[in-house]
Measured scan of single mutants.
Amino acid sequence: PQECLLLEPGLNEIMANSLDYNERLWAWESWRSEVGKQLRPLYEEYVVLKNEMARANHYEDYGDYWRGDYEVNGVDGYDYSRGQLIEDVEHTFEEIKPLYEHLHAYVRAKLMNAYPSYISPIGCLPAHLLGDMWGRFWTNLYSLTVPFGQKPNIDVTDAMVDQAWDAQRIFKEAEKFFVSVGLPNMTQGFWENSMLTDPGNVQKAVCHPTAWDLGKGDFRILMCTKVTMDDFLTAHHEMGHIQYDMAYAAQPFLLRNGANEGFHEAVGEIMSLSAATPKHLKSIGLLSPDFQEDNETEINFLLKQALTIVGTLPFTYMLEKWRWMVFKGEIPKDQWMKKWWEMKREIVGVVEPVPHDETYCDPASLFHVSNDYSFIRYYTRTLYQFQFQEALCQAAKHEGPLHKCDISNSTEAGQKLFNMLRLGKSEPWTLALENVVGAKNMNVRPLLNYFEPLFTWLKDQNKNSFVGWSTDWSPYADQSIKVRISLKSALGDKAYEWNDNEMYLFRSSVAY
């Protein structure tokens, strides 16, 4: 590609939709070469300064400071330590791993069909083939991996386009969902002041979706909304933040926050679980009234959910574990990228498509890292959202599997949720969690119950496949010279610098 592309739109479109291996590689590498390399010296300084700040406030390091958001002291029976968070994340991840490994094996087999000769049947997945710029969410792999393609499509993007949905309609439908469970409408100022579409040439905007509580009843969302099912669900997520903000607005200023950061992320995700169900999509006209649910549509639905929800958990866990180790000084600065990709291979089963030396800073190419967000919130929120969903479905008197529950129109479920939201940070999160779900610790069981039918199906699908991955295989081993030459021509001086062995191999191949 010759034109100058922004991340959004532009590069993200390539990473969402392109099936051209080399075009995807160009976009993936260009973003890291342009952005990651510029941020490397800044990120090194950032780590030093943030650690100084944390230690001045009596924390061991900046990662310890972040984990302090979960700490509860002096509340008998509800205490929770920063170290306990690490333990809980690690042991819940071990419980999730078998499901993830089977999802990984299934996706690898489907990617082998889409990119023959580029995928190893026992290796890691190349990082640039996973549906977005970071491989964070695998949602866009659904069209390549759908188990029963002859069934009606449960990705309702086409239906939204056919019905001329726009950003306003998407957010109005999200608002209807919250109102149906007894939560309030958005304010008039929300509709007047939010930026729900890309302003285009009028001004440059950071398009990463964010929710804003500017105080004095001024709530806004910034999002360059596209007419897709993914953005339909994202709208519910962002509006969930606003509902939380509005619910605790009466609290004293210092207590106007989520019980912990994971709670804030979980609220909209609960609504997304219901909004994505075929039952709900039928009720708002995005699935045909004669759409029939059966075992095959159930597996299609659960796989689509797993690509988004299960596929991202190792990504989140590994990223934050790397940062915690960096802040603690356990990874020397001259080994940041080496350790990043070692951990990516070992924990996530994902491999870099071309080698990256220590001039890169791949983590900082992600919005949340370069903008100083702690990231473990996206792991804890996933466990909380299924715990909350299970409890709210019980309040809504849902009968049947958890993945079929739609809590819309249940004011009982809405009241149970609101009673927790309005507390803000005035009560320990362990107590707030217990008030809703009857337990005071994160628990992976509801998530595993939700995906149980899919897990059973995946194990059957993978019975003749290798489950797990070898960390030795690299996608650039066989194609390295071709890849390096093409990237050198595209990126010039910003391309990865060849070492002596690679230059010798190149000259030998040319001479041959």
Results as ranks from 00 to 15, higher is better:
D218L: 01
G189I: 01
M246W: 01
D213P: 06
T234S: 08
R377S: 08
D230A: 10
N257F: 11
H264N: 12
R377W: 08
H264L: 05
H237A: 11
T139L: 09
H208P: 00
F367Y: 11
R220L: 00
A250G: 12
Y373D: 10
G217W: 02
L233D: 04
Q188Y: 13
F367T: 10
E192R: 06
A249M: 12
T187M: 03
E261D: 11
R377F: 07
R220E: 00
F375L: 08
R256P: 01
V206I: 10
K304Y: 10
E192A: 13
D372G: 12
F137Q: 12
R381K: 10
T187L: 03
G215V: 04
H368P: 11
D218Y: 01
Y378V: 11
V206L: 08
F301H: 09
D230K: 09
T187K: 01
R377T: 10
F253R: 03
P252R: 02
T210G: 10
R136Q: 09
H241N: 12
P252C: 07
F367M: 08
Y373N: 11
A249K: 00
F137I: 12
Q305A: 07
N140W: 08
F301V: 09
H208W: 09
Q188P: 15
K304N: 11
M246A: 05
G189Q: 01
H237T: 11
H237P: 02
P209R: 02
F301L: 10
F219R: 02
K216A: 00
P209E: 07
T210A: 10
H237L: 10
N193E: 05
L233K: 08
R136F: 06
D245P: 03
N193F: 15
E192T: 06
M246F: 05
K216C: 01
H241T: 14
T308N: 07
D218T: 02
H237N: 14
V206W: 06
R256Q: 10
L233F: 11
Q188R: 07
S374T: 11
E269Y: 09
H241G: 11
Q251K: 04
H237W: 08
E261Q: 12
E269M: 09
R256K: 15
E192V: 07
G189L: 03
H237F: 05
R377Q: 13
H241K: 14
S374N: 13
T234E: 07
A249D: 08
T139F: 08
F367H: 12
D372L: 01
V206M: 07
S374G: 11
Q251R: 05
F375G: 10
H264G: 12
D230E: 11
T187R: 03
N193V: 05
D372V: 03
D230W: 10
F301T: 07
H208G: 05
Y373R: 11
E261F: 09
N153P: 08
Y378W: 11
T187E: 15
Y378N: 05
W212A: 04
P209F: 03
W212M: 03
Y373W: 10
P252T: 07
Q251S: 04
H264F: 03
L214T: 00
G217M: 02
R377C: 09
D213Q: 01
E192F: 06
R136I: 11
R220C: 00
E261K: 12
H241E: 14
A250T: 09
N257A: 09
M246H: 05
T187S: 14
N153V: 09
N257K: 13
M246I: 08
D245K: 04
G189N: 02
R256G: 08
L233S: 05
E261Y: 08
T234A: 08
R256W: 00
R256A: 14
R256E: 06
L214H: 13
A249R: 02
H368Y: 10
F219K: 01
N193W: 15
F367A: 09
R220T: 03
D245N: 07
Q305N: 05
I309F: 12
R381E: 07
F301C: 09
F367G: 11
E261A: 06
H241V: 13
N153R: 10
Q251E: 03
D230T: 12
E261L: 08
M229T: 10
R381P: 03
P209T: 04
Y378K: 07
M229W: 11
T139M: 10
D245Q: 14
G189S: 00
N257R: 14
S272Y: 06
R220I: 00
D213V: 02
M229S: 07
G189V: 02
F253N: 04
F253M: 06
F137E: 08
T139P: 06
Y378F: 12
L233P: 05
G215L: 04
D372M: 02
N257S: 12
N140T: 08
L214R: 00
G189R: 01
M246C: 05
R220K: 03
E192G: 06
K304D: 08
S374R: 09
G217D: 03
H264S: 14
D230C: 13
F253K: 04
Q305L: 04
M229K: 11
Y378I: 11
S374P: 09
N153Q: 05
V206Y: 07
R381S: 10
N257P: 02
M229D: 13
S272R: 11
H208F: 10
F253S: 04
R256V: 02
H368V: 09
D218A: 01
T308F: 11
A250Y: 14
E261S: 09
L233R: 07
R256D: 00
T234G: 06
A250L: 07
T210Q: 05
I309V: 08
G217H: 04
D230Y: 09
F219T: 01
L214S: 03
E192K: 11
F301W: 12
H208N: 08
F375K: 04
A249T: 07
Q251C: 12
Q188M: 05
N140G: 12
M229L: 09
R136T: 07
K304S: 11
N153D: 12
R136V: 08
D245H: 12
R220Q: 02
T187D: 08
Q188E: 10
T210V: 06
G217I: 00
H264T: 10
T234L: 08
H264I: 09
G215W: 03
T234K: 08
D218E: 02
S374E: 13
E265Q: 10
Y373C: 09
E269W: 07
T234M: 09
E265N: 07
